[in-house]
């Protein structure tokens, strides 16, 4: 980890403490180091990309942050609180929500119920209230439902509220998953390959969507993505992983021209080729 281009790149919007601070994060599965000594700091309001070839350990990092896996070593601090060792639902309640690489909706429930479940922690009535269906229940349930419907309307899904989630078209399932994650009212949103399997048209609207929710809900976003178009288009800072380790950090432009990144993605030969091309180009430009 010596030749990282700009390890100290500070985001322009850095105001004080990072929202999420990961240090020396390591996860071993038996002898395999899926993630090794991973560091990242994310400041409030940022949109950070995490990229890398298949099997680089990106999703493992997400699973470690959200508590699905327990880290072998290292620390994850969110708003100053240690997350390692907490249960996934406790981490969600602290303000981290996520989507999944392979969509994980509640498949046989309605679109509305998918969002309403995310509100459960804020439901505000006890099991007893629920069983006797008293006034308190009715009021809270009505509020909850209206909030969920308002949410769906933002995502253009309100006309679909009674539809079974698994019957939705793919793009809408993705949107619903993001809506559901936001309904848990997070401060940090982790998006795991949100553009996977989308056609170019859907990708454009997804990028708009990500911009919109970030403004609207005051979010900080960490994003895993394969499509360079998305990553380069919307991320302010990018961290690149390969074989469980960070190989580069920087702005999209810096990453695009980083030899190690090109090598990781395309192999050594390709890196050399790209360098040749670049030399040629600069030569042409120079002459």
């Amino acid at each position: 980890m010596t030749t990282q281009t700009s390890l100290s790149t500070q985001p322009s919007s850095s105001n004080g403490h990072p929202l999420l601070e990961v240090q020396g994060l390591t996860k071993e599965f038996g002898g395999l180091k899926a993630v090794n000594n991973f560091d990242i700091s994310i400041y409030p309001g940022e949109l950070v990309g995490l990229i890398g070839p298949n099997g680089a350990g990106k999703t493992t990092v997400f699973n470690l942050i959200t508590g699905i896996y327990v880290a072998t070593r290292g620390s994850i601090r969110f708003k100053g609180n240690q997350l390692v060792g907490l249960q996934p639902h406790e981490i969600t309640r602290m303000g981290i929500a996520r989507t999944f690489q392979n969509i994980r909706l509640f498949p046989t429930l309605t679109v509305l119920d998918n969002v309403r479940i995310a509100y459960h922690t804020h439901a505000g009535y006890s099991t007893f209230d629920a069983i006797v269906h008293n006034r308190h229940y009715q009021k809270a349930e009505k509020e909850l439902t209206e909030k969920a419907q308002e949410f769906l309307s933002v995502f253009n899904l309100h006309t679909r509220q009674g539809e079974i989630a698994k019957n939705l078209p793919y793009g809408e399932q993705r949107r619903l998953e993001i809506a559901r994650a936001l309904a848990a009212s997070p401060q940090l949103l982790l998006l795991d390959e949100p553009a996977a399997g989308m056609n170019p048209k859907e990708v454009v609207s997804l990028m708009d969507l990500i911009h919109f929710i970030r403004e609207r809900f005051n979010l900080t976003i960490l994003l895993i993505e394969h499509q360079m178009r998305v990553v380069m288009g919307i991320c302010e800072r990018i961290t690149v992983m390969d074989f469980g380790e960070v190989i580069a950090r920087g702005t999209p432009e810096e990453i695009q021209n980083n030899e190690k990144v090109i090598e990781a993605y395309l192999g050594r030969g390709a890196a050399a080729l790209s360098q040749k091309l670049q030399e040629k180009r600069s030569h042409v430009a120079g002459s």
Partner: peptide, 20 residues
Amino acid sequence: SSHGRAIISVREDEIAAKAM
């Protein structure tokens, strides 16, 4: 009720329920 939906969400997808 919301509590019932929480019970059902476990059947639907345990990991997604935790993430919610």
